[in-house]
Design a protein around this nucleic acid. Structure first.
Lengths: 265, 265
DNA sequence: TTCTTAATATGGATG
DNA sequence: CATCCATTTTAAGAA
């Protein structure tokens, strides 16, 4: 006996009733494999033709319609929506959902149900989840190890709130000049360069033209961006984040791996 | 008899064998509801503790690990990865995957399998999918109806490739001044303002300070961004795209709705 | 709520 | 491939 998963009857009227009562209850996940077509009308209008897909309705009301390829759902609707309703029409089941907050409607016409499941997914209260190696960790590292950027750099401040935007790091170099540092884990983009340019301009206007340096730290720099930075009197500092957070390709002994600490030792 | 969906045995060794042969075949989707914990090591290191989730492996190799809430998977791996392997270890099944292109590893430890399905999802070749109302449509509309931006505007060009970025629209105003227009469907962000500023600066440097106007078209403008644009000699033009692509809240008669045209007439 | 930015962003177009 | 950019981005964090 399985208290987590229940197969629903594929008889349409029974199925519709069961689905709607599960939705009212709002504590279980619905998983349906079916041939379907669908309309989404909201921030964009999107239509997908008839095909086999998986429909997932989560406990919080999130709706996902996944096709047979790709990471993203073909269509979806975020949580915090109005009531979801299933109705029977001829030989189809139609899912209707409306999200008042964003004025978005979602209609799925299920023309052939292959499988319908109710999933009572338990989640332990003390369930842990962790992420290591995001931009915050990168900035932390640089604040602890400023010489990774440049010898003699002294950190003054981080996360300075400007009128428009945040400066990642403010420092002073070995010659006493103020340095504004913008940190990106990924390759530098034009937008990153503009952002740094804007911050530095703000300081230069207030404190004098030549007294402020601007450094963009990034994984890598396209040539155009390196040139652009130089033309603006800004600097590129290439620090591949992988050197700071190296990837372990494959654990040799999975038995020993119990936590991230074991995994990356 | 259902030729789309097959329940797999929950006996671990049989299950592992079946899963691996399905993966070798690479033409069907795998759906597993299980209690699991998981490690991802790549662009970031992410760990999730033991909990009930759904694991989906698509035909193209995309791996999704969904929890019971939210639109995004808790962990995932994009397609174009190396071979995926299931192995049995004690009373667990472990999924192992490595993506050489990005040097990313993904390990899922399934400690209790509630349900395992093979989904042979057919997709019709003539399957249609359409999107209406994206930024391209917005620009199209503005090119056809430039007075939505300003009376007397004449469109000269669209999608002009600058060395660093693309200008959406170049136009001439009723006084003969060149106008650079950047179009955003969403609310204006600082990055949007910097982008327009950069384009206009490029033109002003080449063609004279006061002869070039810059207009940012967006759904809405935070006060600070409006002020910033003004300070840079740029202009904000608020055009809520919903007025151009209005949302139909609910179709009165779903029977009549067969396509987007019916839906939004 | 609004605003701002990071993200394993994703995905597509282009060179 | 790298680069650049829109996205129903999503999601988190701060004001």
């Amino acid at each position: 006996m399985n208290d987590h998963i229940k197969d629903l009857p594929l008889n349409l009227s029974d199925l519709v009733n069961e689905l709607n009562s599960i939705l009212l209850e709002g504590r279980k996940m619905i998983i349906i494999a079916a041939k379907c077509s669908s309309l989404f009308d909201g921030r964009i209008k999107s239509e997908v033709g008839e095909s086999d897909r998986i429909l997932i309705i989560k406990k919080d009301g999130s709706i996902l319609l996944h096709g047979s390829e790709g990471t993203k759902p073909e269509q979806w609707q975020k949580k915090k929506l109005g009531p979801i309703k299933f109705i029977q029409r001829n030989n189809n089941i139609i899912m209707e959902s409306y999200r008042p907050r964003t004025d978005e409607s979602f209609f799925i016409t299920l023309s052939k149900i292959h499988k319908a499941l109710i999933y009572n997914a338990h989640s332990s209260l003390e369930e842990k989840s962790s992420v290591v190696g995001d931009e915050k960790d990168f900035v932390d590292f640089l604040v602890q190890n400023p010489k990774a950027i440049e010898e003699g750099l002294v950190i003054l401040e981080r996360e300075r709130n400007l009128d428009l935007g945040f400066i990642d790091i403010i420092a002073r170099d070995k010659n006493g000049l103020l340095v504004i540092v913008e940190v990106k884990k990924q390759n530098a983009t034009p937008a990153d360069a503009y952002q740094l340019e804007r911050y530095v301009k703000d300081y230069r206007e207030r404190m004098g033209k030549e007294s402020i340096r601007g450094i963009l730290v990034a994984n890598n720099f396209p040539v155009k961006i390196k040139q652009y930075l130089k033309a603006q009197g800004l600097e590129a500092c290439k620090i591949p984040w992988q050197k700071i957070f190296p990837t372990v390709k494959r654990p040799i002994d999975l038995n020993r791996v119990q936590s991230l600490e074991d995994f990356f030792e």
